[in-house]
Every structure is written in C-alpha cells, then in structure tokens.
Amino acid sequence: MEHQTNITGSHRRVLVDWLAQVSFKYHLLQETMILTVDILDRYLQIVIVPKPMLQLVGLASLLISSKVEEIYAPSVYDLVYISAHTYTREEVLKMEKTILHELDFRILKPYPLHFLRRYSRLARTDTNIHHLAKYFIDLSLLETETSSLLPSKKAAAAFILASSLANVQLYGTSGKKVWTKDLVRHSGYNFVQLKDPVTVLLRAMATRHLVDNAKAIRERYVKNAPTEQVKSLIKTELEKTITAADHKRVISIIAEQTES
C-alpha cells in the first residue's frame, strides 16, 4: 500500500466494509469475501490506482471471486446497480480483464477459513468460539497489516484470540489451555511461532478506525450469532475491550493459556 499515492488505509477500510455489506446483501460465502480482498490487495500492490477508481477495482475483484467461489455469481448489472451506477458495465468488465491479466490468472489460494475449520474440529470448539474466530478473520480484512500473514497463521491467531476471550468473558475459565498439544502437532506451530501473528491481529483489532468502520461486518455477526451470549459479546463492541487492554498483558494471559 505504501506506494499508492492516492489511496490510504482509511480509503481501503471503507471500501472493504462496503464490499462486506454487498457480499452480505447477495448472501455470498465468507470465502468469496476473503478472496475479493486478496485480489484487491494484490492488484493494489502492482498497480497505482487513482482514488476514483478504487471502488471499481473492488467491484471487479468481487466479480472475479464470485465466479470462482459461488454457484451463482451476482450479475455485472447487480454490481453496477449497487455502486449507484458510478461505473458502467463496460468499465467493470474491462477492469475484470485488467486484473486477471495483471495477476496472470493466479488467484486461487487457501483461505484462513480452511485452517480455522480444521483447528475448531481438532479442539472440538463450540460454535461461540468458532463464530468469534470467523468474526476476527473478517475484521482483519480491514487492516492491511494483517494481509501479509499466512492464512494458516492468521487462522491460528484468530482461534487463539477467540478462545481466550470466550474463556474469560463467556465461560469464566480463564486458565484453560487454548493452543493444545494436539493443535501444535497438527498445525505445525507452537505458541512462540504464533506470538507475532497474535500480536499483529490484536493490534489490528484495536485500531480506532476499525472500530468505527467495521459496521457492516459487526452487524452481520450480531445477526448470525449462534447464541445470545456471543451476540451480546460482539454487540458490546468487543474490539473496544481489546483496545482498552494492555497488549502485553493480553499476550501474556494468552501465553499462559497456551502450551508450547
């Protein structure tokens, strides 16, 4: 993002939350959303985009990822419509072509969600923790700092954060081990290797901008919460709790709950 002369992290944040809103409106998969942001970021890494074109890049990224992931992708007309006809269908299609060309059609990759499902299964996690971890993965899309994390590490960080928070705030089992020997063995990561990703994710969660900009994502996770407990936890703007907390302290608490 540094080389982008016109686009700031805040422009990107607004765009990503808007794309999340669109993907909820069209009932798209979380995979589609993750891939959209991945395509967007990779395009922004190679091409300088003038600010008025940023939304167009986002729309075309969404079109491409929908075609890859969805059974029924939203139509180009839908995308033109939700952008309030800011762009024409020709512009969207031309941008689709440009992105595919620039990325050399290399757009498939594993998602954090794939790894998270595996971790949740191994740990026999309940739906509250899994929901929270998915929420953190979606929130992390708003912050460029987290986009360089490996999907497997990002998922592990989200899992650790979600489990620790749930243990403290929902179950009163704060001493409970989170990153168990089983998870270490199957993921190939011990806590020392995950400390940086957890810190990066925590720091991203705690940005004020994120708290202000994650409206659509938060609303969605409140609406789809599997239980009232986790619903109210997300509603209370969980991210603010994290903001208030001293990072080092959170990390050390999590470390205590984690077997290396």
Binding site: K67, V68, V76, K97, D104, F105, R106, I107, L108
Partner: peptide, 20 residues
Amino acid sequence: DEGVPSAALREICISEGIET
C-alpha cells in the same frame, strides 16, 4: 455478457495453479 465465464475462469486458474 457477464465477462469471463466462470467455467473458463476456474479452468484457467486451476491450470495455472497446477503448472506452478
């Protein structure tokens, strides 16, 4: 039309992935 058909897109992406 809707741009690159999804079947073509998937086929190209998968072939590119396999070739790496």
